[in-house]
Design a protein around this nucleic acid. Structure first.
Lengths: 347, 347
DNA sequence: TCCCGTTGAGCGAACGTTCGCTCACGGGGG
DNA sequence: CCCCCGTGAGCGAACGTTCGCTCAACGGGA
């Protein structure tokens, strides 16, 4: 193993031609070369186990056919799905994907992006909310390499792709209001994030149409089930009359459902729950989870397409590319009566 | 944007030195160079926004400082976690990671691995069960590039890393037997996979010690909650007296819990459930899920360490590198009495 | 005064490609 | 019979580095 790679020169000398001629036939170009010469070269390549060196090719072509994907952590299933979508789409175009996960340290973002730039990726997809305010990263993305982003980029100049966070919240809140909910609380992601703030703003807009007493408070959590369970517990303690919870992710919703159960609240009879994402397990929770479906796979593919257009020199679209979201109604918000039934105890 | 990159030559000419001298100071080597010359070069580099071209460096150094990671789909949260662990560990060593997801088509595996080889990755980590029987891929991994694998590689020669599938099953089954379960069924992953077969074998061994009537059947599923729910339903139909289910993943367990509930079985009172993985949400399901914890993050890091040793020329260890697994007891297997209580109905 | 060692910097070659240009060789049309 | 053009293949340069060797200058010890 770790055998030396054979080069074009060696293939060529075995076939009795110059290495440039070998290059012509092996790179697949339909150039002028005699059929039998081509066959001889192909045979030599096969016999020697020739594998083209795309490092050398990248050097002269000034294109690595590689894109960089800097992601907030793959720990988040939604983001993992996005990465999957992007990678599959990239491969369709013959591109490889260099993936970097961000943890939390401040300098990390710029370091990671710089590493990608040194590797001369053809473009970068940023999918890491923690980079929202990073001016250093924003500057790198603007100056050195074509890029697209899932999140706000400080100072602009980088095309955005994704779904409308505001709309996600609007769909959820409207649904809860139509159900007759009148005390709606929110278990949000970290409120420092724009995604989260956009959702909160969207929700507030809808609530404003129904009177402010509908807002039963917001608790911040860290996208984990455990954090969300604590947040929900805190909300109920603050405001026992809550009749609905809007949760910012399916994973957190698992924790919320658990907390509500522990506190003796039945879902959906006492409290309706709607969350965001529509992960695979959402339909199989008990009760099955109403949620706003976000098209992560498609978003990944769309990011790649947009990036490719950007690489091709198209101008930055002024508006973000938005993909549709959709309410999926399930049992956690299946309120049969607008009037809340009396609570029944189950041993 | 898409501005031309500045080369060492340009930096050097601005600093009034040869480009090789500029190389010496910019690559960080502690070579003999006068302090003020070094400062001049560094200043020129900064002013021009020099970014070293690691493509050219890779060409001459014959090392890309990049590893390839071919993963079954990131759709699987466990695998995503593994990729995360591997990427973080790789970055610690200054390596970037090229990630490829496999879907299903037969030729894809070899194509993807060949693409990585053409990119001259320094090593490959294979984490895709669908590659288990792929002799073409096995051959590439043996012949061209240092590799480690999470799964069996046809013909050997590639070091393995992971946890003992057998032990996972043994821990789960022993636990269920100690609980007093006497009709134990299994919702397995695709039985074509060695992982799955090893688990089934481990389970069978344990069951064999307690009499064969303990085995209440196996149903195959596709790692999804939905598939698992169908499998569980089928198992109960075949064998209504089941008092325990061993599920091959947490995600599938969500589906199994749902199916059991629909069929009027209480967990754990009527049926105990133990699964595998210990994903973040397992502790927050209702009932909380007993599961065998697999150290995905650590496995990712271990794979990178092993690969690096392999790249460094160390011989293939004869035995797989095994990471410990652990039973996490939670409510889904919290049987209070060895004697099953009579079933109580809950409206 | 001579010689040698050290310090600082330049130089050439190599890494494995791609790409455009040149060139030799025939054959066919005027 | 000559010329021109098409075909097939070679050649040189370039991509941006790294690395080892050479070389000039200088200074100090014998």
């Amino acid at each position: 193993m770790a055998r030396r790679y054979v080069s074009l020169k060696e293939v060529a000398s075995r076939a009795g031609v110059s290495f440039q001629t070998a290059s012509k036939v092996l790179n697949g170009g339909s150039v002028r070369v005699a059929p039998d010469t081509a066959a001889r070269i192909a045979a030599a390549a096969r016999e020697l186990g020739y594998s083209p060196n795309s490092v050398a090719r990248s050097l002269v072509r000034r294109s690595t056919m590689t894109i960089g994907l800097v992601a907030g952590s793959l720990h988040d299933p939604a983001l993992a799905e996005f990465v999957l979508g992007a990678e599959l789409a990239a491969r369709q175009h013959g591109l490889s994907v260099l993936v970097s996960n961000l943890t939390d340290s401040a300098q990390e973002g710029a370091d990671v992006v710089e590493a990608l730039i040194e590797r001369r990726v053809d473009g970068i997809i940023a999918a890491a909310p923690q980079l929202e305010e990073d001016v250093q990263v924003a500057d790198l993305l603007r100056r050195f390499v074509p890029a697209v982003s899932l999140h706000h980029v400080e100072g602009g100049g980088v095309p955005l792709v994704g779904s409308s966070h505001r709309e996600v919240a609007v769909l959820a809140l409207r649904h809860l209001l139509e159900l007759g909910c009148r005390r709606i609380a929110t278990v949000a992601g970290p409120t420092g994030r724009r995604v989260v703030r956009s959702r909160l703003r969207g929700a507030a807009e809808v609530i404003a149409t129904s009177g402010s007493e509908v807002d039963a408070g917001i608790a911040e959590a860290d996208w984990t089930p455990g954090g969300a369970a604590r947040a929900a517990t805190e909300l109920i303690a603050r405001e026992p009359g809550i009749d609905a919870v809007f949760v910012h992710s399916d994973l957190m919703a698992v924790g919320v459902l658990d907390a509500l159960h522990r506190l003796g609240r039945r879902v959906p009879d006492d409290v309706a729950v709607v969350s965001c994402d529509d992960l695979a397990f959402a339909a199989y929770l008990r009760p099955s989870l109403s949620t706003i479906r976000l098209p992560f796979l498609d978003t990944g593919a769309a990011a790649v397409e947009l990036l490719l257009r950007r690489v091709g020199g198209e101008p930055v679209p002024a508006d973000p590319v938005l993909l549709p979201v959709e309410l999926v109604r399930r049992d956690s918000s299946a309120r049969l009566l607008a009037i809340r039934p009396s609570r029944k105890e189950c041993p």
